[in-house]
Design a protein around this nucleic acid. Structure first.
Length: 292
DNA sequence: AATCATGTCAACCGCATCGGA
DNA sequence: TTCCGATGCGGTTGACATGAT
């Protein structure tokens, strides 16, 4: 798309009707749009395109302004802090790039999306020998309500449990059994938390967080292992799995969620979760994945 | 130096939503 | 209530950049 002249030509059509340009913006077009926006402000985008003398559709103008020309845009590479925030927000919101961007001043949804799809996704993949699909969900947590006690565990770990307890491990979106029911992202792309936070709007919480009695012993050993791992954090030979488990304890979101899932009387829908509250303490976000 | 593979990112596309007629 | 245009969003594309061979 970097040679617009090749594809859509630009300029006037043969019947005299103005053909809309596509592709890369020229410096002249940028200047026109910038000047118009600065003196007139944002209005109807199709009017902007027309009044600024641009042979572009309103949509294209809007995108160019939002993603490139806006004066408040921050340029340059993402800082480690921004990166951490993006990972955290993605674990909560999933691929809701505009919502993530709204929490990163000066960054656009497109920028963050590109950053995620190129840099972060790649790191998540290469940071472990685990299968790709599992690692891409590495930021996710499974929350279990177990006889009034709420626990969390990494999705990775959860899947290994499922492979021994369910024959349908490849289709994880809705797993029903005599003693359990789970709803997971079908592609394992979006962390479970993010789905629970929005994609299942309308579903009652207790449909998402259900008792898993048959896993009790496994959960207990998970917790024990987790505690053990915490005591040996300084051990340089700590396995990647233990790193994973060890970080669970510091995830404050779990505590916040307990306020909801711990009370069966409460029947708010998922859409009513207070995400702002969940986002309060970014520093507690677990670094599941070792970025080296 | 040439070729190939992979990464980056600007921009497009299609769809969903919203508000006004 | 329906229609339609505007807007916003997320997924995808593909040209260009860069590194590897």
């Amino acid at each position: 798309m970097r040679k617009p002249e090749k594809k859509n030509g630009g300029g006037n059509g043969k019947n005299g009707d103005v053909k809309l340009r596509k592709g890369l913006w020229s410096p002249e077009e940028d200047e026109k749009l910038m000047r118009y926006m600065l003196s007139n402000g944002q209005g109807c985008w199709s009017d902007v395109a027309r009044n600024a003398g641009l042979q572009r559709c309103g949509k294209s103008c809007r995108l160019r302004w939002i993603n490139y020309l806006r004066p408040d845009l921050k340029r340059g590479a993402f800082s480690p802090q921004e990166e951490e925030l993006i990972i955290h927000l993605h674990s909560l919101l999933g691929n809701r790039w505009s919502q993530i961007a709204a929490r990163l001043p000066g960054r656009t949804d497109n920028e963050i999306k590109n950053f995620w799809n190129s840099t972060i996704k790649k790191r998540l993949r290469t940071s472990s020998s685990e299968p790709k699909e599992v690692m891409e969900a590495g930021g996710g947590l499974i929350f279990l309500q177990e006889q009034g006690i709420n626990h969390s565990m990494p999705l990775m770990y959860m899947e290994s449990l499922l492979s021994s307890s369910s024959s349908s491990t490849s289709s994880l979106q809705h797993i029903d059994g005599p003693n359990y029911q789970m709803v997971l992202d079908p592609k394992l792309e979006i962390p479970f938390m993010a789905q629970a936070a929005g994609n299942f709007e309308g579903i009652e919480r207790d449909q998402l967080f259900v008792p898993l009695p048959q896993l009790e012993s496994t959960i207990n050993s998970f917790i024990e292992e987790n505690a053990k791992a915490e005591n040996t954090t300084s051990d340089s030979n700590i396995s990647s799995d233990n790193v994973l488990f060890n970080n669970i304890n510091s995830f404050s979101v779990t505590d916040n969620l307990n306020n909801y899932v711990g009370n069966p009387e409460e029947t708010k829908t998922v859409g009513e979760w207070d995400l702002e509250e969940l986002l309060k303490d970014v520093s507690n976000f677990p670094s599941f994945i070792d970025f080296q």
